[in-house]
């Protein structure tokens, strides 16, 4: 069986929105410890991994199951979440459906037909990073939106004391600079200077669910994938984004 209750359907909507911008479908691996999932986008440029430990749920009961979900349909349902709605996710094994229930003044129940995605699990590569930037989510998001006016990609640079996002257009440039003294920065770790270039459309999709108060961790290397981590209402999201390189 699988039955799990989340305090805020609206908060979980942000998680589903973020998954749906990058992925078409995802296979949730549920067990007594919580819910996990990992998948690459169709072009294999980005990877998203989700971990919701059982402590993030108000109620949680689960045996081992793989629950394959079509994300566009799930997103449409989650868009109906209202403030103060609780969310119950419940596996109906007989009908092979995931019941998505909004609980508030009554119960509104959608039954989402499941996909057979068994065996489609994605392994997450273990990459080693020396530079880690912990930054306020809104500052990062605004800098990426600024850069989007200038170019379709950015260069991220990190040194022991500084983090920069640069965009170069044909005529105009943009640079966001954050030093370890700035309010936006929680910490900058790393002993060397590194830089990698990334596609902006993917970056903007990855920070879609981030709002004021969220803290984002960035792991950077030289022409290495960007690793990004943040939590939304106890749901831990991790992304990898492959770099663009000079040929």
């Amino acid at each position: 069986m699988f039955k799990a209750k989340l305090e805020s359907a609206k908060e979980f909507k942000k998680v589903v929105d973020t998954m749906a911008t990058l992925l078409d479908e995802i296979c949730l691996q549920v067990n007594e410890e919580g819910v996990r999932a990992a998948a690459m986008d169709p072009s294999h440029v980005a990877l998203l991994s989700l971990n919701i430990p059982r402590i993030a749920f108000e109620d949680y009961q689960a045996d081992e199951h793989e629950i394959g979900i079509e994300l566009e349909a799930f997103k449409k349902i989650m868009n109906r979440a209202k403030a103060k709605d609780k969310l119950i996710l419940e596996l109906d094994e007989e009908r092979n459906r995931l019941n998505v229930i909004f609980e508030n003044q009554g119960k509104r129940k959608f039954s989402l037909s499941l996909l057979d995605l068994s065996g489609a699990t994605t392994k997450v590569p273990e990459l080693e990073y020396h530079n880690v930037i912990t930054i306020k989510g809104d500052a990062l998001k605004e800098a990426l939106k600024d850069a989007d006016l200038i170019s379709d990609h950015v260069i991220m640079r990190a040194s022991p004391y500084e983090f920069k996002i640069e965009a170069k257009g044909d005529l105009n440039d943009f640079t966001a600079e954050f030093s370890s003294e700035d309010d936006a920065i929680i910490s900058i770790e790393g002993e060397e200077e590194v830089k990698s270039a990334f596609n902006l459309e993917y970056l903007l999709d990855m920070v879609k669910g981030v709002s004021k108060g969220d803290i984002v961790k960035l792991y950077l290397g030289n022409d290495m994938p960007l690793k990004m981590e943040y939590s939304l209402a106890g749901c831990e999201l991790m992304f990898l984004l492959a770099p663009r390189i000079e040929e």
Partner: peptide, 11 residues
């Protein structure tokens, strides 16, 4: 010329 890599290169 810039080239977009895929994650497969890092597995």
């Amino acid at each position: 010329k810039k080239k977009q890599l895929t994650l497969d290169a890092f597995f």
